[in-house]
Design a protein around this nucleic acid. Sequence first.
DNA 1: CCAGGGTTTCAACGCCTGTTGAATCCCGAG
DNA 2: CTCGGGATTCAACAGGCGTTGAAACCCTGG
Lengths: 203, 203
Amino acid sequence: MTTTGRRGRRPGDSGTRAAILEAARSRFSTQGFRAATVRAIAGDAGVDPALVMHYFGTKQGLFVAAMEFPLDPAEVVPRLLAPGIDGLGERLVGFLLQVVDELGEANPMLGLVRSAVSHPEAARMMREFLGEAILDRVAEAVGETVGADRPRLRADLCASQIVGIIMARQILELPELAAADRATLVGAWGPTIQRYLTGSLAS
Amino acid sequence: MTTTGRRGRRPGDSGTRAAILEAARSRFSTQGFRAATVRAIAGDAGVDPALVMHYFGTKQGLFVAAMEFPLDPAEVVPRLLAPGIDGLGERLVGFLLQVVDELGEANPMLGLVRSAVSHPEAARMMREFLGEAILDRVAEAVGETVGADRPRLRADLCASQIVGIIMARQILELPELAAADRATLVGAWGPTIQRYLTGSLAS
DNA sequence: CCAGGGTTTCAACGCCTGTTGAATCCCGAG
DNA sequence: CTCGGGATTCAACAGGCGTTGAAACCCTGG
C-alpha cells in the first residue's frame, strides 16, 4: 500500500532503509538466503526493488547488513562467564532459549543457519561469527580458569549441541521440544554443555 | 559426453534411470532442494532434462525418490539395541559417523537437512522419517527396558544432538570436529546420547 | 528562488528455472 | 516383417530472478 504511483522523495525522515532491513531480517530468517527474494523483501517494506539495490548494492550486501547480530558477544560472553564456571552450561542454554523467544521471527541465528546449508558464503559468515565472536572466547576462558584440555574442541562440541537445539526446536519443530517449558530444556541440555566445557571427554 | 546428438532409444538396458537418481542424490545432498536444478542433475547424468520429468513427473517426485534412505531402520535399530542399553550411546554415535563416512557425498541425511531448512515439504519428510522410523522405535525400547520417564522427549533430545553433529561436522565443517578421529568423537558425543536415553534429565 | 543531490520509481535487460508437447528412434512381441 | 510403445531429445513456453540506467520528485543550502 505505497502512496499512490508517484515517484521521487516523500517529505519527512522516511525510515525506509530501516523498513527494508526489518523486512530482510524476517524473510532471510524464515526462508534463507536463496528462497528470500529481493522483490518480496521490497514488497514487504512497501518499496521498489531498485531502492534495495540503491541502499545495499547487492542481495549479498543486504544479507550481510540484515544478519548483523543484535547482541554484542564481547559484552554478553563475559557476563555469562562472570558468576563462575559452576552452572555455566545451564546459564548458557537458558540465555539462548530466552534470546530465541525474544527475537521471534526476525532472528539472525535462524537466517544464518537457514542460509549456511546451501550458501557457502553464509556458512563462512556463520563459522567465523561462531568461532571468533563466541567459541574462541569461551574456549579461552575455560582453558584458563579450569585448565581443561583441548579447549577449542570443547567449544566446537558446544556449538554442535547449540546448532542442534536451533535446528530441532525452531526449524524441524520436533513436537516434544517445541512444547517443553524452558526449565525442562535447561535441565536437559545444560549438563551437556557443562560437560563439553569442563568434564572428561573420554567415556 | 552423451552419445552424439541422436534421439530415441539406444540399445541395451541403459541404466539411465539409475544414473539420474545417483546424480540427484549427489546434487540434493551437496546443494539442497532449491539450489539443485533439474538441468544440472540431467547434465550430470548425461541426459535431457525432459527425461527426468518423464521418469519422476516433477522435481519434487525426483527428490522423494532420491532421498529414500539406503538403510532400513526396522533392521538397523534393533541391531543397535540388541547388545543392551549399556554403551548404546557410543554405539549409536559410532554407527552414525561410520555411515556418514561411507555414504560420502550422496548422503540422503545431508540432502534432507539441507532441504528442510527452506523447503517445508522436506522438513516434513525429515520429521516423519526421524520420528516414525527411528525415534519412536528407540523411545519405545528405552521406555520398556529401563522404564525411563518421558521416552519421546528423550528421543527428541537425541535427535537435537544428532542433527547438531551433522550440521557442525558436515555442513559448517567446524575445524576441530572435522579433524578429530572417530574414537574421540564417540567418547565426546556418546555419553550425551546415553544420558538423554537413560540418565536423569534434571540438573 | 535557484541549483544540487539524496530518495524513489519505472521499465527493461538477460538469464535461469520447472515444465510441456511433439517428434524421433529402435527394441521386442506377434 | 510389421508395428506398438518405451526411451530419448528438441524446442519452446511462461514466469521469476537479480540487476541496471534513467527519469521524476522534492527537500535543503545558498
